[in-house]
Simulated scan of single mutants.
Amino acid sequence: MASSDEGNRGIHIGEVHGAFAIGDNNTVTHNEHAPGHPGTDPAQEELLAAVRQLRADLARVIETPQVTLLSAELADAQQEIETGGRTAPGRLDRLRVALSDAGAVTGMLASGAAVAQAVAGLLGG
């Protein structure tokens, strides 16, 4: 609810639910799970953080077919976790293969090792 006080041209916001932005040139990032979703477990949160970091690191490397495939798998995994709270086992398998295929690049990135470790932990091995 918004209101304006007499003599004060400011805006008072009493309570807000969801995402919003005030002013020019703002961006809103709102990561909320679907209603009734129990939330993301710590292992999935760890994977999400590692995926985000690796995606940022990959944006600075030379694009190869393997890097392109890995970037797509990372984007899909990130979306799954942000919207559903977890990645599907099939996605984890594809991510593990894509990490392996792009090993020449990911092997020299700490974020690549972090994603590989998180995926292995979630797959139980």
Rank of each mutant, 00 (worst) to 15 (best):
L109T: 00
A2Y: 08
I13Y: 10
S4Q: 14
P89N: 11
V51D: 05
G124P: 03
D41Y: 05
S100Q: 14
G84V: 03
G36I: 05
R52Q: 13
Q79C: 05
G125S: 11
I62S: 15
E6A: 11
D5Q: 13
A120L: 10
S3Y: 14
A110G: 14
H33R: 13
G90Y: 01
N31L: 14
E45T: 06
S100Y: 12
Q78R: 11
V61M: 03
D41T: 09
P65L: 04
D41H: 06
T29D: 13
V115T: 06
A114K: 09
L69R: 09
R52V: 07
R55Y: 04
P89K: 08
Q66Y: 02
A75I: 05
G7I: 04
A56F: 12
E63M: 11
G14M: 08
L74E: 01
E6L: 10
A104R: 12
L122R: 05
D24P: 09
L47H: 06
T29W: 11
V67H: 06
R60Q: 15
H33Q: 12
R60I: 00
R96N: 11
D93K: 14
L47N: 04
M108G: 15
Q79P: 00
P89M: 08
E63R: 15
A21E: 07
T29G: 11
H33E: 10
M1D: 12
R55L: 14
N25M: 11
P38A: 14
A110L: 10
M108L: 13
A102D: 00
S4V: 15
S100W: 13
A113I: 00
R96W: 04
L123M: 12
L109D: 00
D101E: 15
G112S: 06
A104E: 12
D41F: 07
R86D: 00
I22Q: 08
G107K: 01
Q79D: 10
V115E: 02
G23Q: 06
S111W: 07
P65I: 02
D76R: 14
V119A: 00
A59H: 04
A77D: 03
D101Q: 15
L109Q: 02
L95D: 02
E63D: 13
V28L: 10
Q79T: 10
H17P: 00
R60Y: 03
A77R: 01
G39M: 05
L92I: 01
G39T: 00
A43R: 08
N26I: 04
E82H: 03
I11G: 13
A19Y: 07
S111Q: 07
S3Q: 12
